[in-house]
Design a protein around this nucleic acid. Sequence first.
DNA 1: GAAACTGTACCGACGCGACGGTTCAGTTCT
DNA 2: AGAACTGAACCGTCGCGTCGGTACAGTTTC
Lengths: 192, 192
Amino acid sequence: MARTAGRSAEDTRHLILETAAHLIGRHGTAVPVAEIAQEAGVSKGGLLYHFATKEALLHALAEHLIEQFRAEVHRRAEQEGSGPGRLVRAYIRVSLAEAGDHARLRDSIALAAKLMFEPELEQLVQQDADRWKEELGQDGLDPSIVRLVVAAADGSNSAPLWGAILDEADRLALEEQLLALASPQPEGSSGA
Amino acid sequence: MARTAGRSAEDTRHLILETAAHLIGRHGTAVPVAEIAQEAGVSKGGLLYHFATKEALLHALAEHLIEQFRAEVHRRAEQEGSGPGRLVRAYIRVSLAEAGDHARLRDSIALAAKLMFEPELEQLVQQDADRWKEELGQDGLDPSIVRLVVAAADGSNSAPLWGAILDEADRLALEEQLLALASPQPEGSSGA
DNA sequence: GAAACTGTACCGACGCGACGGTTCAGTTCT
DNA sequence: AGAACTGAACCGTCGCGTCGGTACAGTTTC
């Protein structure tokens, strides 16, 4: 057998990436590449053809997820009413939505935890964080509000780490709270 | 050589635990037990004398860290002025302090990330989270404040995951903000 | 237009190092 | 005496990466 019928190499690559994310979310990054390959309906050799090493696979996956998140936030920002805080509110929406998708969230956390200890890949995450810090800081909001809101959004995205999964009601309530904080229309309140 | 002069078995046990936390913070839970033993100045056999298996070691370490955090928060709560919000404010203080100790924070995160995928150990974290949720909920504060503040505190403790390390100024500012939110002396503010 | 050739995509068995855990005889502190 | 180790050899497993092969899609050649 060779190229699987009706599937381009790019499709295969993408399929492997999705499968990897899925399995990593369930079993952690320790999951064997052979298992990822099998689940993706590809041989181990086939997988290694696309990603020469497991680290390369994880690297590609990290870029994939980071890029996806960033694109999603910017997409939401366009829909957000104009004025200051657009980007922050979009960041909140996407973060909290992700927090509601437990499976997907586990993918990200497991991968991020792994990257923490791979110096070469760590800076990939680092740079992304720096970029966010800058972008969110230039969104026209009070820096103290941004700091608070972003910390809370990130926190809701890290909850599974500490076992604290927000239930649906809490998640939605928190989202409303954060959006309110990031919406510059004071009705007589004082910023805390 | 046998028992090291002037050190009780309990001391050795504790030393191993501390060393393990330290190394895990630097290299992740994949660090070999032999390496932990060596770094602790103990033979591999000696380590396995105290912790029959690596999983047992990680289990003990998790309990250690969880218990330590809980004890620390309750200790701080005693020092906190009485009235509603004592525990929440103590939780904030300890969380943010930990967020400032990057090395120690990495220990916790690396371990927590590992536990996520060990069903048996996961519930250990889960139960702890449930306990916190209950305790913090009964602290006499508006639930929406607690939700916001705890999410932010947890977020600051998860920052390294996303590469977003708070600098000292931000950390202190955030701490002040959260403490203010968790202090029930309204000067004319409305709840968000 | 079909045979010969080429490169891409993929297969699957194997080698090999690493790591967890066992065993055990010996040693030293309390 | 018995608890608390040391030290080193050893085993089994597991997972990564390599490597020789294979099957098709195009492309070239006549």
